[in-house]
Amino acid sequence: MTKLDIESHARESRTPSSREATRAAQGPIGTFAGRIVREANLLIIPMILLIVALSFFSDAFFTGHNLTNILRTAAIFVILGVGQTFVITSKNIDLSIGSMMALVLCVTASLIIVQDWSPHLAVPFAIAMGAVLGVLNGMVVTKLKVPALLATLGGLIAYRGAVQEFMYGGQYVGLPEQILILGRGMWGPVPVPVAIAGFCVALGWLLFRYTRFGRYTVAIGSNEEAARRAGINVDRWTIGVFAFQGAMVGVAALVLMGRMNAANPNMGQLNELHVIAGVVLGGTLLFGGIGTILGTVLGLLFIGVLENGLLLAGAGFYWQQIFLGLLIILAVASQMLRIKLQGRH
């Protein structure tokens, strides 16, 4: 339970009946664990089973080194996933994030390496550049009325083309210490990328639950016309959602740059699908209106553990792709089933 929740419970003087109804609506356990179970669409159960199975079959799995590695890899996807959760909840989708990340990464790296920019300047630059590209996506969706699927498919291709053109087939290697820390450093016992992802998750969670931004994201995804009639500037908030996703892309680009110690125009390919699979698997509704940041974290950890398990089992990259493809289908199919079972969502 967060401080906010405790406060709201203490300050509200509800009637017993309504309090009971609320508790019933929240499920048997109103605890943090209960919330995770609820929000994450019961994903936690297959995940625990998977972890148990893996630790049985592989000695390499349950080592500190391997687990840290899973978290480090997942961190970048989680950062992207926080943004994508908002996008999908608003009944949009952003397919451009993988390409966009490569573009932001390479432009930022060239500023540092070629233009001698200080990393202290490069960090806000990368986040701002991501946000601006996000605004661009949002403008195409809201002002040109291009459905997000196609608008960001265009972005996926165009941003990739742009970064290839920009790098001209080459790559940068060797970035300053301050950037490397973002991808490789430790913050006490916690890897810095994991701490950054944790910060992004906390930010996303608070925004989603406790601010207008989150509320309007849900409202627009659930019933855009009703949101508009209620006086909500739908276009502006939708652009804001894409901008937020873009800013998260900027953060992820910095972490990836530090982790790879390089800038290469082929980075981030297929990342958008990995992220979307995790978000949907986590319980965010592909048709808008329902989103869960914690579910996204679990969904992406699940995929991370699964891929790690495949790796330990000796399956190569192509097998991982096959599994990712199947997972996306599974995630959407499970949502369709859920909608069918619940009647209304």
């Binding site: 207008r212 409202a219 995804g221 019933n223 006086g231 329902i290 209304r344």
Partner: peptide
């Protein structure tokens, strides 16, 4: 109140009463 109500299904009753003019 429009014929098709214009409520947001995924937002709670309180949130719908205040939609677009939430207190901060």
């Amino acid at each position: 109140v429009y014929q098709d109500l214009a409520l947001v299904a995924h937002v709670d009753v309180g949130g719908n009463l205040y939609l677009g003019r939430e207190p901060t």
